Simulated assay, not measured.
Amino acid sequence: MTLRNRLALAGGLLVLSVSALASPAGTYTFGQPASAANATRTVEVDMTDIAFTPKALQVKAGETVRFVLVNKGQLLHEFNLGDAAMHAAHQKEMLKMQQSGAMTPTGMSHDGMDHSAMGHGAMGMAGMKHDDPNSVLVEPGKTAELTWTFSQADNLEFACNIPGHYQAGMVGTLKVDP
């Protein structure tokens, strides 16, 4: 693939990603993504095989929190904000990504993927992306960030939805106070 074709593909994926963020399906009752510059607090969360430290967090409605996620483990991990039902649904998507070869134990791979196995048809690569605004994947030894403004009081979880990780206990509680 030529550089020109790669750039055209990347631009097309960017357009699809931005339009997905603007759709009603990309909205969350508990808040929205925010700029790190707007954060009122920074919280570091360590990811190991298979745990988060700390295991519980407390924030306030209206607060913008910058999460600094440090993967100290040997495996790929995810930090995903949501309730138990959202995590259950996302785990099914992550399993499909793993089964298709899009996700390996230590990272994401777009080589040799069978996009038709994902049931996305003409969407191709766009359906294979892990680009939910309430979620970030962190490779072993890497650090990533997610900044979020919490809109209302709620009882949430932060979880790693990579197949088997949630079930092994890689989940924490996130209480949003009024």
Score class of each variant (00 low, 15 high):
Gln98Pro: 03
Gln58Pro: 06
Phe79Leu: 08
Gly119Arg: 06
Val138His: 03
His77Met: 04
Thr143Phe: 09
Ala25Glu: 12
Thr147Glu: 04
Met118Ala: 10
Gln58Thr: 13
Gly112Gln: 10
Ser135Phe: 02
Asn161Arg: 00
Met94Asp: 02
Met128Gln: 05
Met86Ser: 15
Ser135Ile: 01
Asn38Thr: 08
Ile50Leu: 08
Ala37Glu: 15
Thr40Glu: 15
Leu137Gly: 10
Pro140Lys: 04
Lys96His: 08
Met128Gly: 15
Ala25Met: 12
Asn161His: 00
Thr40Phe: 07
Lys92Tyr: 08
Ile162Trp: 01
Pro163Cys: 10
Tyr28Asp: 13
Thr48Tyr: 01
Gly119His: 06
Leu95Tyr: 06
Ala88Ile: 10
Asp111Leu: 08
Ala37Pro: 02
Gly82Trp: 00
Phe67Leu: 01
Gly121Asn: 05
Phe158Arg: 03
Met118Pro: 07
Ala89Pro: 02
Gly73Arg: 04
Ser35Asn: 12
Leu76Arg: 05
Ile50Tyr: 07
Gly62Asn: 00
His130Tyr: 11
Gly31Thr: 05
Met118Glu: 10
Thr27His: 14
Gly31Leu: 06
Phe67Asn: 00
Ala36Lys: 07
Gly127Lys: 00
His77Pro: 01
Glu78His: 00
Tyr28Gly: 00
Gly31Glu: 01
Ala39Pro: 06
Gly26Arg: 01
Leu137Tyr: 02
Gln167Asp: 09
Trp148Ile: 00
Thr27Trp: 06
Gly107Thr: 08
Ala39Asp: 12
Leu81Lys: 00
Glu78Leu: 04
Gly31Cys: 01
Asn155Tyr: 04
Met94Arg: 04
Ala126Lys: 05
Val65Trp: 09
Pro133Asp: 07
Ala85Met: 11
Ala61Ile: 06
Ala144Gln: 13
Lys142Leu: 04
Ala153Tyr: 12
Met128Ser: 14
Ala117Cys: 06
Leu81Gly: 11
Gln99Asp: 14
Gly112His: 07
Asn134Lys: 14
Gly73Pro: 02
Ser116Phe: 09
Asp49Cys: 05
Thr29Gly: 15
Pro105Asn: 12
His130Val: 15
Phe67Gly: 03
Leu75His: 15
Gly26Asn: 07
Glu44Asp: 15
Thr29Lys: 14
Asn71Leu: 05
Thr104Ala: 09
Thr64Pro: 00
Val43Asn: 04
Ala89Tyr: 09
Asn71Lys: 02
Pro140Met: 10
Gly82Tyr: 02
Thr48Pro: 04
His165Gly: 06
Gln91Asn: 11
Lys96Asp: 12
Ser100Lys: 04
Tyr166Ile: 02
Trp148Lys: 02
Ala88Tyr: 03
Lys55Tyr: 08
Ser135Gly: 13
Ala39Cys: 09
Glu93Lys: 15
His110Asn: 11
Thr147Ala: 08
Ala84Lys: 11
Glu139Cys: 06
Ala85Leu: 11
Phe52Met: 01
His130Ala: 14
Glu145Tyr: 02
His77Gly: 11
Gly141Val: 13
Gly107His: 07
His165Ser: 11
Ala159Lys: 04
Gln32Ala: 08
Ala36Ile: 09
Thr53Ile: 10
Phe150Val: 01
Met125Leu: 10
His87Lys: 14
Val136Cys: 07
Val59Cys: 09
Ala144Arg: 12
Ser116Asn: 15
Ala37Trp: 04
